[in-house]
Write a protein that binds this DNA or RNA. Structure first.
Lengths: 203, 203
DNA sequence: GCAACTCCATGACAAACGTCATGCTGCTTT
DNA sequence: AAAGCAGCATGACGTTTGTCATGGAGTTGC
């Protein structure tokens, strides 16, 4: 019997090690490489051609979502399972667009990880039904590229003036985009708008 | 030979399971209970009187910092190791004030966890030297209680008007506290101030 | 007792913010 | 070709935010 070969990518070393230990307790699964960012994972995958990649989303160098898209394009035999803290509709949508087979939350019981790996390996989808429903209700990202750029910077604490310089716009224009974003999100100011957009995975 | 008895507390079930699996690979360590929040951990400790508690900070019901203080007061034979994502000076300071023996970051290699448990069990301190230095440089929390209350709400996206109603203050007063906080933190507006304070563990 | 100090509280004023009306692309749809 | 639409861009106008000067209440040190 051949074990399912898995690469795990996760930027918190302690969690990476722990997840690997968890998967190693399964008799039919082998962790053949560990990566602490997207680039490392891609290198490992190119060499080892594993059956499954388990990856976090928020990582330095290359996010798990970008990584998933790369893997789909270059190594389609490797199935991707996203493993993340964030129940953000926007993340789920982008993950599925990027060809991920699974989207698993870190709040789920640890027993589900091995199951998800097995199911993904067989080509099946693994998506939390509640999250999928929420993603459906929330609808797609209503922000335009400009609005996203500007709202992100506003959420960092930058003033309209600073943002306008950075993007070579007039200050009024920046305020206008923010106003649009605030209105689209049903917020009452830039801070709330940024928080909302972040919580839905749109920033 | 008797194994070191450990309770692990962590709100993300997947990570909890993974950390337990990681510790179980050590021949001299046994995970005798798992808890997904501070209250559960306290119950487990009261029954099992373990040697070491490994706990996250940000958890529902009761944070790891509060938990550490309770454990110090009621079960002093149990040593506490804080295990967290956040390299926040304010958290470290509060953890040590709460009698924690160790403060370990989730970006550290997973091999360090077992070491930290062993050292804590022997009554030794385990604190990342770099983080300790940073905590020293950053100095203590400069915010007053009022400033913290108000800055926290401002960071949530609330307007000065809303905050003033909530706390029964005049709007000008709220703006003034924010101005003070902004100045103390060297920020240039409320958003940046809130971000800074959060990143240092003062909110 | 009374400085000196810290925290709490306020209003006046200038600066930044949010909204609105408006116009300019480019790209479908008819 | 014309109409419709989405995104981009701007300035004017009223509102919110940030700063500053000022004062009261409680504590500490002498």
């Amino acid at each position: 019997m051949k074990k399912i070969q898995v690469v795990v990518a996760e930027d918190q070393a302690m969690v990476l090690g722990a997840l690997a230990a968890l998967l190693e307790t399964e008799p039919d699964i082998a962790v053949c490489a560990r990566a602490s960012n997207g680039r490392e994972a891609l290198t490992a995958i190119s060499k080892l051609k594993p059956d499954v990649l388990v990856t976090d989303i928020e990582m330095p160098e290359m996010t798990g979502l970008t990584l998933a898209a790369e893997v789909r394009d270059r190594y389609p035999q490797t199935r991707v399972v996203i493993l993340t803290t964030f129940a953000r509709p926007g993340y789920l949508r982008r993950a599925l667009d990027a060809g991920a087979k699974g989207y698993l939350l870190k709040d789920r019981p640890s027993a589900e990880l091995a199951d998800a790996v097995r199911r993904a390996h067989r080509g099946l989808r693994v998506v939390d039904p509640q999250l999928a429903a929420e993603a459906w209700e929330t609808g797609p990202d209503p922000l335009t590229e400009r609005e996203r750029q500007i709202l992100w910077r506003a959420g960092e604490g930058k003033s309209s003036g600073e943002i306008s310089e950075e993007l070579h716009l007039s200050e009024g224009t920046v305020r206008n985009y923010l106003s649009e974003a605030i209105s689209k999100l049903g917020a009452s100011n830039r801070v709330e708008a940024a928080r909302l957009a972040r919580s839905r995975g749109w920033l």
